[in-house]
Amino acid sequence: MTELHTVGTNPPWEGLAGSERYAACMIAARDGDKRALDVLIAELTPLVWHVARGTGLDHGTAEDVVQSVWLALLRHLERLSEPRALAGWLITTTRREANRVRQRMAAQTELLPEYAEQLPSGDPLPETLMLRGERDDKLWAAFRKLPERCQMLLRLTVLAGRAEYREVAAALGMPHGSIGPTRGRCLKSLRGLYEDGDGAR
């Protein structure tokens, strides 16, 4: 979908990992290298996606927010003073964008009441999830009953535990390999909700 740029040298981010790699991409993107932005989008969209979903947005809105966040990065390429802090910036921007979306949706629905009529009343949003069986349903249902703060924290804990998102741990002040008391409580709640199962609260 993107143009093929043939440059004589290897891209400056080649062979780098984590925040070094993202910083190299940011610098190249500022210089107009479109491949650099594509690399960032390919490698960091999972982070943006899970933060957006962690705020409780439905599937379709989360997709739009992911795109808004990348457009915001395009706007801020010149202004982002610390390219190494990209993961932290993405997390903050995604949360802010998700909140804005919610407010704008609510305001717009008030302005155009005919749209409100089309909305299903209080039904959970149809989720296009990859649920494969009863156990998956149960796990998903339990997870969605957690407070949003827990859902976000647990999603980010999983990502931060992976090498490519090591800087997420740093951005959130999570020592590597540590679960911490808050995460422990969230996991315990998840177990409790799962064991209650079958829609019991």
Partner: peptide, 8 residues
């Protein structure tokens, strides 16, 4: 891919 297209 859609996000990459959106920013291009």
């Amino acid at each position: 891919e859609r996000a990459q297209f959106a920013v291009a």
